[in-house]
Nucleic acid binder design. Structure first.
Lengths: 231, 231
DNA sequence: AGAGATTGTCATAATTATGTTACTTGCTAT
DNA sequence: ATAGCAAGTAACATAATTATGACAATCTCT
């Protein structure tokens, strides 16, 4: 199946966020354009065919809601809102306006990509029930939809964070992933968390992998660089 | 694929560092300009198109953060910060300002180049998933992503320093590399280390190569000059 | 509200890596 | 052959990194 990459427009006035988001999207194979205000966003959207919009609610001038309302007159492409706070009010308003999904800051790369993928799939003629969204390596399969990890010996029960962590590692199976990258992927861009915290989660992850009857050595330590999931 | 060399602006007031950095960058094929203060840097950046900035945080007059903030209004080119200390505060501030990556002094050539490459790749629309990052010579392959060294007989387990050392040698396979150059590459510019230390690491490296079933003679001694990895 | 799960941080232990020194071996030029 | 330098080696102390266990704070359900 030949696929042309989906085009995404990212609208946010904070460079640190647009950069984080566009980097994550590009790495995933999407085409991403960035603008820092609603006016330019609307102009760009009018002259281009975007498959998805990622909008911050708080924007100088025309805010995200207003922009979304206007976009709706032009296109049916899905809209993913970013919000500073995960307040109930925002959520309701956003969804009423025609926003399709919601992401509260701070969010990790993996969470972002998951939402984007879901929205794009939805847009392109419904979901494919068979096309499960999973990662497999070294006998472990991670089902991203069901949020489960399992292998021959049955399921490994993981907390959300542990799941994200394992997913980050397995996605780069065979490659070293630094603690910083893991924090970016599984935690978020504003990782105020200590890199040491990753160590603790790795330990817990290994324990659970072990308890479920698998080899805890699947998560390898690469001294001085980070961790690596055995390929 | 024809590629025009990326242009990089290095800003630091310490000549020893700018020299070290620009030398390393040029050797790698980049075009590097150097200035020792924020004002000149901003002026140069305004009249030229740089693909990347390397900024020291501590600068006389306008400091690195301030410079970065101003650059952000001109360009979206990535910024790599150099910091004297790897403090948490610095990290947060740097990321807020729009810094893209961080390098704590002292750093080695290889580490610097790795970061620069990553940042430039990031800007140019994502990475090529298949393009693995490796060096091969005389039957040994060094995979920089997986951080492994291996050949037909399997993997050679190396410490960080040994890995860097071997990488430096293999990158110049067939050529003699002096102890001084090895220290610069794998240790850093402020090598307060004795050149004799290299000998010790070479010995350990050979031992491990031998233990893994390969010819320790792959690392040749060039009496009076340094070492050479067999081509 | 309360029980239980989840999460981040810290202190400490265990492990591994690193740099230096002192000593040995070996090469090279006279 | 041998003095003199260069490189190899082994041992050691220190430094750096990671693993682990315990704790408190927070979150999530009922």
């Amino acid at each position: 199946m030949i696929e042309t990459p989906s085009r995404i427009l990212v609208v946010d006035d904070e460079p640190s966020i647009t950069e984080f988001v566009s980097y994550a999207l590009k790495k995933e194979g999407y085409e991403a354009d960035v603008v820092d205000n609603g006016e330019d966003a609307f102009a760009l959207a009018s002259s281009n065919n975007y498959d998805l919009f990622v909008l911050d609610i708080m924007l100088p001038g025309m805010d995200g809601y207003e922009l979304c309302r206007r976009l709706r007159s032009k296109t049916t492409a899905p809209v993913l809102f970013l919000s500073a706070r995960d307040t109930e009010l925002d959520k309701v308003v956003g969804l009423e306006i025609g926003g399709d999904d919601y992401l509260a800051k701070p969010f990790g790369v993996r969470e972002l990509i998951a939402r984007v993928r879901a929205l794009l799939r939805r847009g392109q003629g419904g979901e494919f029930p068979g096309a499960s969204n999973s990662i497999t390596a070294s006998g472990i399969t991670l089902d991203e939809d069901a949020h489960t990890a399992a292998g021959d010996h049955g399921e490994i029960d993981l907390t959300p964070r542990e799941f994200e962590l394992l997913a980050s590692l397995m996605k780069s199976a065979g490659k070293v992933v630094s603690r910083e990258d893991l924090l970016r992927d599984a935690w978020g861009w504003e990782y105020l968390t200590e890199t040491k915290t990753v160590d603790t989660h790795i330990k817990r992850l290994r324990d659970k992998i072990h308890a479920a009857g698998y080899d805890p050595g699947l998560v390898e330590t690469v001294r001085g660089y980070g961790y690596r999931f055995k390929a």
